[in-house]
Computed example of a mutant assay.
Amino acid sequence: MRRYTIPAVGVLGISMLALTGCQASDGSTASASDTPITIATLPVSDDPTQANPTDALVELLEEETGREVEVTDVPDYLSVVEAIRSDHVDIGIMSGFPSALAVNTGEVDALLAWEGSDEPVSTCVVLDDSPIRTVADLEGATVAFADQASSSGYFMPVYMLHEAGLEQGKDYEAIFAGGHEGSFVALEQGQVDAACTAVVLTEMGAPTFPFAEGEWRAVGESPSMEVMGTVLARQSLDDETRTLLEQAIPKVFAEENAEKLAAYSSFIGLDVVTAPEPSIFTSFADIAAVAGVELEDLE
């Protein structure tokens, strides 16, 4: 496995998706079977004492495809989208909302999608000694969100607060911590009153979720999502690699690999749709609008 890192250069808003350093494919005539599969990922954990689930993902994908896999680390969700959109990488694994935004550009394909369950996606976490007991108590609070394109760390909890009558910028202050881990750090250090995140992360324990039992409480639950995640692909991806990935990825996300995949394991056990139609993301439009994002504005 080869690994590259694109530094954080700033995404200048949903409509621009700017990523310095992405280049178009070089037009090589090499056979697809001789070339690596390239994937853009976000850093999952900075803890050097823990196994990196991205390494496990790569190892399993190489086993199933028989191809080398190269990883490019990017700073945020929208940078993953732009890396695919600009032909810098072959694929990226994304949650529902950034996938909906990407597919709506008409310049990125959904290779496959994991359908949602009936379980709530997000919650907001407070320290156990916090006076905040309900979602309504977050009025006047400072709330940490993971990333402005995160499904579980932004869109769904913002919708949850909206349903409780709280609007961002009016009833509470929002900060973006650059990821779920950053949200937890901000809460732990007392920089925010609450951190909104994925329910599944709170269930995983350390090191993914740094708070022990008795140190934290969950406040509220968001609705479920119709699509939990998607494998996005560049539209120029060759048919051989496309078919290979459609067959291999569901095998990678099998129950026996749940422990290895750690944070990626939330997709395991969900029904898979191959080559889903863009209409699968229709339900995301209303929730995105609550967060001030119109899917049709992303072009």
Results as ranks from 00 to 15, higher is better:
R2D: 14
R3G: 05
P7A: 14
G13H: 09
A24N: 14
A24C: 12
S25L: 11
G27C: 03
G27S: 02
A30E: 13
S31F: 14
A32V: 14
D34L: 13
A40R: 04
P43Q: 14
P43W: 03
V44E: 14
V44N: 09
D46A: 14
D47T: 08
D55I: 06
E59W: 06
E62P: 03
E63Y: 09
E63S: 12
E68P: 02
E68N: 11
E70N: 14
V71L: 07
P75Q: 04
Y77P: 04
L78I: 02
S79W: 00
I91H: 03
G92W: 01
M94Q: 13
S95Q: 10
P98K: 00
S99G: 12
A100H: 04
A102E: 07
V103H: 07
V103I: 15
V108E: 01
L111T: 07
L112Y: 01
A113Y: 05
A113K: 07
W114K: 06
G116M: 07
E119I: 09
L127W: 00
D129N: 11
D129T: 04
S130H: 02
S130M: 01
I132N: 03
D137M: 08
G140V: 05
G140L: 02
A146D: 08
D147L: 04
A149F: 02
G153F: 01
M156V: 05
L166K: 07
E167Y: 13
E167D: 15
G169T: 12
G169C: 12
Y172T: 06
A177R: 01
A177G: 02
G178I: 04
F184A: 07
L187N: 00
G190Y: 11
V200R: 15
L201K: 11
T202M: 10
T202A: 10
M204P: 03
G205C: 06
G205N: 07
A206C: 07
P207H: 09
F209P: 07
P210V: 00
F211N: 04
A212N: 12
A212L: 12
R217G: 11
R217N: 14
V231K: 11
R234I: 00
T243Q: 15
E246K: 15
K251Y: 03
E255S: 15
E256F: 08
L261W: 08
A262V: 02
G269P: 07
V273G: 02
T274M: 13
T274K: 13
I280Y: 12
T282Q: 15
A285P: 05
D286I: 00
A289V: 02
V290H: 00
A291H: 06
V293L: 00
E294N: 15
L295F: 03
D297V: 01
D297H: 13
E299Q: 11
E299V: 08
E299G: 09
E299S: 10
